[in-house]
């Protein structure tokens, strides 16, 4: 009977460990989408998504609040429509601004939200109207090279001042 007990113990240990690892894999690494399904959809129109991919994070004040669900092209005006799912319970004002940013110099693209001050809130499937397209490193460099950075990026004086004069 000792043999049976050893077997039962072994199976028990393995099942516990295995389940713990599976839960870790699906919930912790798999971004919790399997359980955290209480989200609501929001759309945003961008002139250029510049390498944003589905599954990218949506951040507000540096905190992940959602994910990019789909990116498609609007055939009427050739703009990109990004569909996002935002954690429900997070109410966003209608004048929220969405911009595509890059973590680090060549890191992942993500969508950053900056809430405005409007009293009205975005409902499900509403569209964010204020957007800022991806900042493309190549075009930025070429602009710096031709000295037009100051006009385009007038909010960013430091980078403009370091740009070499032609």
């Amino acid at each position: 009977m000792n043999r049976d007990k050893k077997l039962e113990f072994g199976v028990g240990v393995f099942v516990l460990l295995g389940l713990a690892a599976l839960v870790y894999l699906t919930l912790k690494l798999g971004a919790g989408e399997l359980v955290g399904s209480d989200t609501y959809p929001v759309e945003a129109r961008f002139a250029n998504t510049g390498g944003l991919s589905t599954g990218a994070t949506v951040m507000l004040a540096g905190v992940t609040v959602g994910r990019v669900d789909a990116i498609r092209l609007d055939p009427e005006d050739y703009s990109a429509i990004v569909e996002m799912r935002i954690r429900s319970g997070l109410a966003l004002p209608t004048d929220t601004m969405a911009s595509i940013k890059t973590s680090g110099l060549i890191g992942d693209k993500f969508v950053a939200l900056a809430p405005g001050a409007d009293e009205e809130l975005l409902g499900p499937s509403a569209r964010i109207t204020m957007t800022e397209s991806a900042l493309e490193l190549e075009s930025l460099i070429s602009k710096m090279a031709f000295g037009s950075v100051k006009n385009e990026q007038n909010g960013d004086q430091e980078s403009a001042s370091t740009a070499p004069e032609p």
Partner: peptide, 15 residues
């Protein structure tokens, strides 16, 4: 970066 990189699709592929 581990957290950020792995999507549920990757986990599904793995399983």
């Amino acid at each position: 970066s581990v957290q950020r990189a792995v999507e549920s699709e990757d986990v599904r592929e793995c399983l």
